[in-house]
Design a protein around this nucleic acid. Structure first.
Lengths: 353, 353
DNA sequence: TATTATAATGTAAACGGTTACATAAGCAAT
DNA sequence: ATTGCTTATGTAACCGTTTACATTATAATA
């Protein structure tokens, strides 16, 4: 059906080996022959098939990224960071997303297997057993923000605990003693760690602990909005609220303002992730900055090490540091606007041209 | 190195054909033999290699999605829509992003070629020639939001022109005669179409046309903010501003409010895309709703048709309709909150379990 | 001139699967 | 006993590349 290397060889009156050499810029082929082959390639509109090539050289020159069903800017930032870094290493990226239960993730692992030279996995449902059952021992893997205990995998985790701890401590330093949290979704590792940081900060800061102050949320704007509405309905009145991510923080802000309550005078507010939008709401939202782009870049960097050094690669568990960004919503003065990573990366892109 | 089908065959004392039959649930193999083979598979921890399989059956059971340099919520929504629909058809998705010039997109096409059974392409830089040079004639393709003139490709486009036209007409119906636009990035097809709609609406509505009212932007929050700051500095005072996307709309809102000017009383404001956040800013932002999730789903649907019906698939150019959502920022009363697609799709997901 | 090194090309065996076709065994019908 | 059908299995070609090794031609050296 499609034209193959054999057709080219026949048409150019050479062997397939010679055609292959031309394709791979081998210097073991004479100028005349090379021209002749290239003519045939053009004439037949020949396009090499990657499958055959990969099978033969046992490399795909691609890495895989397995993601849960996530939404918002985190997702695109992460993919961008991963893709850009992969391209830097002359690797291509294959993303497979929306895997939110064990079956789906197993299916994803099975399909990606053989198509990539290494794999970055971000999933709440991944574990030693699932990986070992579905992936060859020899495939380099980096786990991203996974719940991982043993040292058999290289792993990268955002220091969610530390970020939450420091942000809540910051609220306490403003004098708050009654601080609510709007929690993230059940079964989400990030959410759990942020909750843990919140609790520890309360304890260490001698602030009030009350399980009623722990409001339910699922990381969406709407859930943050609803959490606050429900809170008011129950006549709960914390002096500060820590939203486990910015989307919920923005939703919460909207609900507080609708109730005619001033932020930060009557209720202080803080979020997590530092998505671009939080600098543009009124008042600007204090948040915990996670450099998602860098996170993706770092994951690829580790993976490339693992692929290249194969046997002598040393697995690590890395905690990626975060940064508290105080803004108006917690009672701090408005800081100068931060330049986005995006802007920086765009500039880098432009330099490439 | 890795264990192959041959190793399994040897270990189970059968031929590779029999092992293959077991793997593919052929009913041409006796129960006893099947058990024996399965035992060997488990014992050797055999994992079939997709490359070999795909090469042999000439199908990959995967589709590709080629994207420009992505940021913001648009892309996560799109990827989700595409992935979910692909999974529905038992297909897997390979995403390749960050292709913002001709060279990069050619590299992407070359790498993805052979690894997928069909391709969805979204790019400002794609054209007939690039596709024909880098992809086999036989590969089914759907173009998404590309600048496409001829009918040689199946294509899907958001009706940007119509959305902008109707939103600006809506502003005019509020009595505005002096309406600014914050434009999107150069060379962006969406941005161009939205600008075209803006201009035509001004003309048809007998509103003032002045090229000074066309402010520069690049779809980022910061650019919307800066556009308005610059506008004030130049003492330009339109009574309404149409931001070519919501991110810029939010940035613009922030700048207007910092100047102590009331929205919508003194300046009305509207955006485009209807990202979730716009319902939660004060005042809520009027916008043009694009059902991105559906857009992705529709693209996959068309592609699956093209893959399955191969020869008898009829190429179309489809314009995806959009919806004007008036909110407070243009002077309309605040509508009831819309349920997100996300929420709907999550519910669908839950039903799957 | 005979020998050896080098350069250009070809042959054929991988890579890891699937599958058309061949074969063999068992059984029922003639 | 022969024939034909069904079921289970094996053999080997094929998918589209790369590449180790073999071969040949050409030039340099003894």
């Amino acid at each position: 059906m499609n034209v193959t290397i054999k057709d080219v060889a026949r048409s150019a009156n050479v062997s397939v080996a010679t055609v292959s050499r031309v394709l791979n810029n081998s210097n073991l082929v004479s100028e005349d022959t090379k021209k002749q082959v290239q003519r045939a390639i053009r004439a037949l509109k020949y396009l090499p098939n990657n499958l055959g090539r990969s099978l033969s050289i046992k490399r795909t020159e691609a890495i895989g990224l397995i993601l849960p069903d996530l939404f918002g800017e985190f997702f695109s930032e992460l993919i961008r960071g991963v893709d850009q870094t992969a391209q830097l290493h002359k690797y291509h990226l294959l993303v497979s997303s929306s895997h939110d239960d064990r079956k789906e993730i197993e299916a994803a692992l099975q399909m990606i297997r053989g198509r990539v030279d290494g794999l970055i996995i971000m999933s709440a449902y991944i574990d030693f057993h699932t990986i070992n059952k579905n992936l060859p021992k020899s495939l380099p893997i980096v786990l991203l923000n996974c719940r991982v205990d043993d040292t058999s995998f290289d792993s990268l985790n955002i220091n969610n605990y530390d970020g939450a701890y420091r942000m809540v401590s910051h609220l306490i330093s403003h004098g708050h003693k009654k601080i609510s949290i709007i929690k993230g979704p059940k079964n989400n590792h990030d959410a759990e760690e942020r909750l843990r940081g919140y609790r520890q900060a309360l304890k260490d800061g001698n602030a009030e602990y009350d399980s009623k102050l722990e409001l339910l949320g699922d990381f969406s704007e709407a859930s943050g909005y609803d959490a606050v509405k429900t809170m008011f309905k129950k006549n709960l009145r914390p002096t500060a609220i820590f939203a486990a991510n910015d989307s919920m923080g923005v939703g919460a802000l909207s609900a507080i303002q609708e109730a005619g309550i001033d932020v930060p005078e009557e209720i202080a507010l803080a979020g997590f992730d530092d998505i671009p939008i939080v600098q543009f709401v009124k008042p600007s939202l204090s948040s915990v900055r996670v450099n998602i782009n860098n996170l993706g870049a770092l994951a690829v960097y580790r993976l490339m090490q693992a692929i290249l050094e194969k046997n002598k690669f040393i697995k690590q568990k890395i905690l990626v540091p975060v940064e508290v960004i105080p803004r108006e919503s917690c009672g701090c003065p408005k800081p100068t606007r931060i330049t986005f990573d995006r802007t920086i990366s765009n500039k880098l892109n432009q330099n490439k041209h």
